[in-house]
């Protein structure tokens, strides 16, 4: 099947077909078997994906993993060799308007006309989304407020910093109140301060109920923004789940670092008896515990200290990150 039919996906209820996702029949976005080749290079291998309404989903992977190609097929910009995409129950394809009303795209590039002002850019994008007259003006003003650029609305985009341009670009994706906002590497080329502001705004959009599809090769961004994520490598989705599920899938343990004074030997012995704790080591004023789920163990640690006259100076939970997950899954670092 080239680009899917006109009707929504058949309800399968099988998590096997859309791993880790909700029932595809209830999903806002469903991709089935998306595949795209460029010559001999298979950029995306049979990608299945489902995103629920209001969910923040991240696609994580190194450069060249196939994230942008996957998103391009999902948004109807690139015709898949096979497979199909449905957004809001409508089949999405190249050259078809169906489903795109529910979609707001923030491409990897700034995707703005730099000889136009921010307001002119947004007005154009709004009109193409079908907004008119007073409603258009109101929405332009609103999204400019959201991205905190109201005071620069009439300035040409060419005079903006990278961060401001990116925020304008995000505003362009929000104009028509899409149910799904697709952000492709939205912090590339942005200074750290602007990057933080952008992430805060994206998280806020997620809180307000907009479903997000967020791609990045920065694991910390995906961890921060997304409820659930898929890891891509060489065109394959090699893992999918919440951060916790992904970490658990590689069998890695959290590390509790406890600085304290007092009878640390007795304290260490008591720690070993806690459920979930698999290993405890003591080194001068520090006790280190390896646990299956460090954050669930933590509430039990504090009550242990007082009866033993141990004074806790600090407690840290060092959890395995997605970098370690990627390393475990591929044998390579994420940024290799």
């Amino acid at each position: 099947m080239a680009a899917g039919g006109e009707t929504g996906p058949a309800p399968t209820g099988s998590r096997g077909e859309a791993p880790g996702a909700q029932d595809p029949s209830e999903a806002l976005v469903t991709c089935r078997g998306l595949r795209k080749s460029f010559g001999d290079l298979v950029a995306v291998h049979d990608l299945d994906l489902a995103i629920a309404p209001g969910e923040s989903y991240g696609l994580l992977g190194p450069n060249g993993a196939g994230k942008t190609t996957a998103i391009s097929m999902l948004c109807g910009l690139v015709r898949p060799d096979r497979g199909a995409v449905w957004i809001d129950g409508q089949s999405v394809g190249v050259g078809r308007a169906a489903g795109k009303q529910a979609l707001g795209l923030v491409p990897q590039q700034m995707a703005l006309y730099d000889d136009l002002s921010a307001r002119e850019n947004l007005a154009l994008l709004g009109r193409l989304q079908g907004l008119r007259g007073r409603e258009l003006r109101r929405r332009v003003d609103e999204v400019l407020e959201v991205v905190q650029l109201a005071d620069r609305a009439n300035d040409r985009v060419a005079t903006f910093s990278g961060g401001m341009q990116r925020r304008t670009s995000i505003a362009g994706g929000l104009l028509h109140r899409p149910r799904l906002l697709v952000l492709d590497e939205p912090t590339v080329g942005v200074d750290p301060q602007s990057r933080n502001a952008i992430l805060e705004q994206v998280i806020e959009l997620g809180r307000e109920g907009t479903a997000l599809l967020y791609t990045s090769h920065y694991m910390e961004e995906v961890e921060r923004v997304c409820d659930r994520m898929g890891i891509m490598d060489h065109g394959h989705k090699i893992a999918e789940g919440t951060r916790r599920e992904l970490v658990d899938s590689i069998g890695s343990l959290d590390r509790l670092l406890i600085e304290a004074t007092g009878d640390l030997d007795s304290f260490a012995d008591r720690l070993r008896d806690l459920a979930g704790v698999e290993q405890v080591d003591r080194d001068d004023a520090t006790v280190t515990a390896l646990a299956r789920n460090g954050r669930s163990v933590l509430p039990q640690v504090i009550p242990l200290a007082a009866p033993l006259d141990v004074e806790l100076l600090s407690v840290e939970v060092d959890e395995p990150d997605l970098e370690q997950v990627f390393l475990a899954l591929t044998g390579r670092a994420l940024r290799d």
Partner: peptide, 10 residues
């Protein structure tokens, strides 16, 4: 610039 992609996603 990505503007063409944006237009085609509309």
């Amino acid at each position: 610039q990505g503007t063409l992609q944006r237009l085609r996603a509309a």
